[in-house]
């Protein structure tokens, strides 16, 4: 009985990285240039905003909920960054992070205290974020002043020894999230909520507070993703981050964090995001139209959910 995992269970844990390696090899066979360090580095840098958003999403899925507001919060963040840059400089980053925390916390309060299912509460909060973004931007695409951008966020855009700073920042963010998840009481509580919420309640932990925290962090990471995206594109608009939501959810689930929560985590999402990146760029390599991606990822999402979900936690599937 002692820790005897079945073969499939053990395999399942390794499935994400095996997928990643096979995908890399498969594309590498068609075009060996794909595996060149430069190309891989570009590939990784390209998905930095997605990775940051997916890391935030991971925390919410880890507790068994979902966050559908990430894309709207990122959209709003691109607008807020661009607008506040002239006045606040690098402080605009802090403003945006605070806004993300706030919106995430609202989702958390509505879900945990008002008992509204998270897919509805985050959809609604996403609507509010969308309105804020449209209002703040006047429904236009906005541009940053090159000089101000360089002054405030130039450090994100540079490279050191050929490695883009953007990538380093993203990995630092992943490291922070990993630390929260694995080394802090909050992360342990998230895991417990995902694994067995009634046990957490019966252990005298204030579950609601931790749920709100998870949503707030997810909002914050989404805002940081928007911030980085906006700095990269030197501007903001209420639709700039369109198309992020699906790949972000796919990255989390393909990485091996199931919809029911409790297992997986940010390192899984790191691998999941790389799988998304490889699939995406290999589709370009193989001349599959961009529209095919959406179909493909939608189907992958279904397969990923179906294979990872823990049905013993869902007595009735609604």
């Amino acid at each position: 009985m002692n820790g005897g995992l079945t073969y499939t269970e053990r395999m399942r844990r390794h499935f994400p990285w095996i997928t990643l390696v096979s995908a890399l090899l498969l594309v590498g066979m068609t075009d060996i240039n794909f595996l060149s360090p430069e190309n891989l580095l570009n590939l990784a840098t390209d998905i930095v905003p997605l990775l940051v958003m997916a890391v935030g999403m991971t925390l919410v899925i880890y507790i068994g909920s979902i966050d559908l507001s990430s894309q709207s919060i990122a959209n709003m963040a691109t607008v807020l960054t661009t607008i506040s840059l002239p006045a606040l400089g690098v402080g605009s980053g802090l403003l945006v992070i605070a806004a993300g925390l706030l919106f995430g916390a609202i989702s958390g309060v509505v879900t945990a205290r008002l008992k509204v299912p998270s897919f509805i509460s985050t959809l609604a909060v996403g609507g509010i974020a969308l309105s804020v973004g449209q209002f703040a931007s006047g429904q236009q695409a906005l541009h940053m002043d090159a000089e101000q951008r360089k002054h405030a966020f130039g450090w994100i855009m540079g490279t050191t020894a050929g490695i883009p700073h953007e990538l380093i920042v993203a990995l630092a963010i992943v490291a922070v999230a990993w630390f929260i998840q694995n080394r802090m009481t909050a992360g342990r509580t998230f895991k417990a909520i995902g694994a067995a919420e009634p046990v957490v309640v019966a252990s005298g932990i204030r579950v609601e507070r931790y749920k709100i925290l998870a949503f707030a962090l997810s909002g914050m990471f989404a805002a940081i993703a928007g911030l980085m995206f906006s700095v990269r594109l030197s501007g903001g608009s209420p639709t700039l981050a369109e198309g992020f939501l699906l790949p972000a959810i796919v990255a989390v689930l393909v990485g091996g964090t199931p919809l029911t929560g409790g297992v997986g985590g940010v390192t899984n999402t790191l691998i999941g995001t790389m799988i998304v990146a490889v699939v995406r760029s290999s589709m370009l390599y193989l001349n599959i139209p961009a529209t095919g991606q959406q179909i493909f990822f939608g189907l992958v999402l279904i397969v990923a959910i179906a294979t990872t979900i823990d049905r013993s936690k869902l007595r009735i599937v609604k």
């Binding site: 342990r188 895991k191 417990a192 995902g194 694994a195 067995a196 009634p198 046990v199 957490v200 309640v201 019966a202 252990s203 932990i205 409790g262 297992v263």
Partner: peptide, 15 residues
């Protein structure tokens, strides 16, 4: 309500 399966022994004990 008693045991969180998916979590190990020390994680359960200190919950």
């Amino acid at each position: 309500e008693g045991i969180a399966s998916g979590m190990n022994v020390f994680e359960n004990m200190t919950l």
